[in-house]
Design a protein around this nucleic acid. Structure first.
Length: 403
DNA sequence: CGAGATTCATGTGAAGTATACCTTTAGGCTTAA
DNA sequence: AAGCCTAAAGGTATACTTCACATGAATCTCGTA
């Protein structure tokens, strides 16, 4: 048995690896040079440059669909800025924060607390007045004359959740400061987000704007080409692979992140199959696998309560083919809770949980009036059939009940 | 037959509550002068 | 008297509950043709 495994490992090592450097294709990777975003890069740098003379840069707002390089450009620019400033001994700090992260930056308190943590100050997760956290933040940065650049990614998500009062507070920060100056970079996927804001907030938060257009198919192809030259060993890709990835991504409004992910996963699939080259078919598998992994990851990380609600929905769909409504889901949920040993939430809360699952794209729900028979949400599960089984397994394990 | 009233089942907003955690404060104890 | 520790008091954010009202089309009601 051991011998068998040893052989396996031997074979594994003997195999010509497809990847030369897998990290280059992973989602967090930040390349040295960014292609086809020269204009945007320049604009962002232009806005931020005054910070090097210790002037407060204008607040900046950035729009663009997912995978158009917004995050990349901003991260890249503020990193370079911070490095340069450090070299020259300029008092400048930069912070990047993604507002969507649950339990990290999805309320006003948590946002400011997280900013403080980024500056190396420990803040309790609860208990302090929000006001106090602001004050702490001011104290920390106002100790010396310096510029702070704060980038808030996916800020539209945060505002849609907790309202725009937060932005109002944020933009007024500088009035409270004597020495330091703070500028904000807001990043949004929603192109119309700014229109929904209070005019006062809008004008001060969006002194400058940069719009990121989608990449076209040719640009995506070049990006892929360049990355794959570095990431793969020579001739690891069969012809047409890059083109197909680019085409898939261009179909989705030029989402480069997706194209890169597709390529990486396709290669991983090929590697697992012990192929010598990545073939075009692997891309189709990759597309499925990405969706599969995304959903599984999402569900595994859901709180137990949400899992039970989802479990109920799936079970009801399994029993009847059409029309799942809140009432039935809640009924089953109520029966399930004691079995699992979970405290039972009210219908009000479960209704919100269903809305949250909808937001995550695990299910699709729409409010529907059934006339005489009241109104309810009609729920449809958005999990592909072949993924469903695995999802059920996960829920079974996590909740300790059988389907 | 058709306009308007009624109804149902739940959506949804606002206010209230429980929990977990924070800081402040007052009291008690110890210590050192 | 000063210093230190501890426990109670008073405060907050967050997740959830409670309360109350809003929805909107199928169905019912009733006056009229």
């Amino acid at each position: 048995m051991d011998g068998g495994l040893n052989n396996f490992f031997d074979d594994y090592l003997k195999k010509e690896p497809l990847f030369k450097d897998r990290a280059l294709l992973q989602s967090g990777y930040c390349p040295e040079t960014i292609n086809h975003r020269e204009n945007e890069l320049k604009k962002v740098a232009n806005v931020l440059a005054p910070s090097l003379r210790s002037d407060k840069p204008s607040n900046l707002f950035i729009f663009g669909k997912t995978g158009t390089g917004k995050t990349l450009v901003v991260k890249h620019t503020i990193n370079q800025l911070a490095n340069y400033a450090k070299e020259k001994g300029i008092k400048l700090k930069t912070i990047y924060l993604n507002c969507k992260l649950k339990r990290v930056a999805d309320t006003e308190y948590r946002l400011v607390a997280q900013l403080l943590r980024n500056l190396g100050v420990e803040v309790p997760y609860t208990g302090l007045p929000t006001e106090e956290v602001y004050k702490k933040f001011f104290d920390v940065i106002d100790k010396e004359k310096q510029i702070i650049v704060v980038a808030l990614d996916e800020i539209d998500q945060l505002v849609s959740k907790i309202g725009d009062e937060l932005l109002y507070n944020i933009t007024r920060m500088n009035e409270e400061l004597n020495n330091a100056r703070v500028s904000f970079i807001g990043i949004s996927n929603d192109l119309f987000f700014i229109d929904t804001l209070d005019p006062r907030v809008r004008s001060s938060l969006s002194e400058e704007e940069v719009v990121f257009p989608p990449y076209n198919a040719i640009q995506i192809k070049e990006i892929l080409q360049q990355r794959s030259d570095l990431a793969f060993s020579t001739s690891a890709l069969s012809t047409g692979v890059i083109e197909k990835c680019a085409a898939y991504a261009a179909r989705e409004h030029g989402d480069a992140r997706r194209a890169i992910e597709l390529l990486r996963v396709a290669a991983e699939v090929a590697e697992r199959n012990c192929q010598k080259v990545v073939k075009i078919e692997n891309i189709d598998h990759a597309e499925q696998k990405i969706e599969y992994d995304r959903i599984l990851d999402l569900i595994t990380n859901q709180p137990k309560q949400s899992q039970v609600v989802l479990f109920s929905i799936i079970k009801i769909q399994d029993e009847k083919k059409e029309g799942i409504f809140t009432g039935e889901v809640y009924e089953l949920y109520q029966k399930l809770c004691p079995k699992i040993g979970l405290s039972m939430l009210t219908q009000r809360r479960v209704s919100d949980i269903i809305a949250e699952l909808d937001m995550l794209g695990i299910i699709n729900s729409r409010v529907l009036s059934k006339g005489r028979y009241g109104r309810s949400r009609e729920i449809t599960i958005m999990i592909p059939k072949d993924t469903l089984e695995k999802v059920i397994n996960i829920l079974n394990d996590s909740l300790g009940i059988a389907f």
